[in-house]
């Protein structure tokens, strides 16, 4: 269980996280979604106490992370930035972390097997590929049998097999009743793993909802239709809150009406329909819609900098 209240972080005069209030519940996978640079990694560092908040606070299982006696047993974390000494072997890296909590060598071996790094465990971590580095990070995160698992962009650098492995791992962890909090800038990835979504842009919370609700709310009513009397139908459908785009002659996209409403209008006016397809926006599109404002903001900010250069 993670609870943030008014969490705010400034770096110089830039506000990276802006009054975030949310809670992450156990037993489900919660996706933490936002474009690059929206404050996801900063929020996670604040949760772990690596950075101190400018304002607000965040607790894990009722206490500040720092105040727990066995922090690795409370939260297992994987940060986006590499957190491994390149000169140390994977085994010794995990052992050094395990020893701070009196965790046995047997457990270290168990995790090395779980993430599939047995053959390279004695090699220096600096030689690892991105995917192997992620697996090592996962092993470190799970070392303490944590009740909360927090992963920043965990599928980054994983191959398809690794991505599949990661998805089933996350679901398994949630099924065991753990709190699973996973960030990503990829909506499609979240749609496959997350049950709940917290969406942020420019450090502010934009949405906090179940994945399915997020999808249906964001897609709105978009219906595509094909008709030999498209022009006539178009005139009948247009209303103040309904827009009709002509994609090609005889092929329309209607915003603001359901397929049922359109079908009824067509039937009442004896207009033939050759196709009537409600379109569900992909999560990617929904995400883009929601964060567009934030991104445009950013693009506008970039202009003066370019001019200076």
């Amino acid at each position: 269980m993670i609870e943030a209240r008014g969490l705010t972080k400034d770096y110089g005069d830039k506000r990276a996280v802006d009054g975030l209030t949310f809670s992450v519940r156990p037993g489900v996978v919660t996706g933490f979604l936002g474009p690059n640079g929206s404050g996801k990694s900063t929020t996670m560092r604040l949760i772990l106490g690596l950075d101190a908040p400018t304002d607000g606070n965040v607790t894990v299982n009722g206490k500040r992370y720092r105040d727990h006696e066995a922090p690795l047993h409370e939260v297992g974390s994987l940060l986006e930035a590499r957190s491994v000494h390149t000169g140390r072997s994977a085994y010794n890296h995990l052992l050094s972390l395990a020893q701070t909590h009196g965790i046995s060598r047997t457990r270290v071996d168990e995790l090395i097997d779980l993430v599939g790094l047995r053959e390279v465990a004695k090699q220096r971590a600096g030689k690892f590929s991105l995917g192997m580095g992620q697996r090592l990070g996962i092993a470190a995160a799970l070392l303490g049998d944590p009740s909360t698992v927090m992963l920043d962009e965990p599928v980054n650098g994983l191959d398809p097999e690794g991505i599949h492995w990661m998805r089933s791992l996350l679901k398994g962890l949630a099924a065991e009743g753990r709190t699973v909090f996973v960030s990503s800038h990829l909506m499609s990835e979240m749609s496959l793993t997350a049950d709940h979504l917290i969406v942020i842009g420019r450090g502010r919370k934009i949405a906090d909802t179940s994945t399915s609700e997020f999808l249906s709310a964001a897609s709105g009513n978009v219906v595509r239709l094909r008709s030999p009397q498209a022009d006539e139908l178009r005139r009948l459908l247009v209303a103040p809150d309904v827009t009709v785009d002509v994609i090609e002659p005889g092929y329309l996209e209607v915003h603001g009406l359901t397929a049922v409403q359109i079908g009824d209008v067509a039937a009442a006016n004896r207009i033939a329909l050759h196709e009537l397809t409600p379109r569900q926006a992909s999560l990617e599109e929904a995400f883009m819609d929601l964060t567009r404002e934030e991104i445009e903001f950013k693009a506008a900010e970039l202009e003066p900098e370019k001019a200076v250069a």
Binding site: V29, E69, A70, P71, L72, H73, Q99, T100, H101, G102, I103, S104, T106, R107, E110, L114, L142, L143, G144, D145, W165, R167, S168, L169, K171, G172, L173, A175, E176, L192, T193, A194, D195, T211
Partner: peptide
């Protein structure tokens, strides 16, 4: 969200202690 058939299980840790200076 459908649950995958091949769900990974994380083995429970036998012993986890608190952080001490000696550790």
């Amino acid at each position: 969200m459908s649950t995958s058939a091949s769900v990974q299980r994380l083995p429970r840790a036998a012993h986890i202690g608190r952080v001490t200076q000696l550790r």
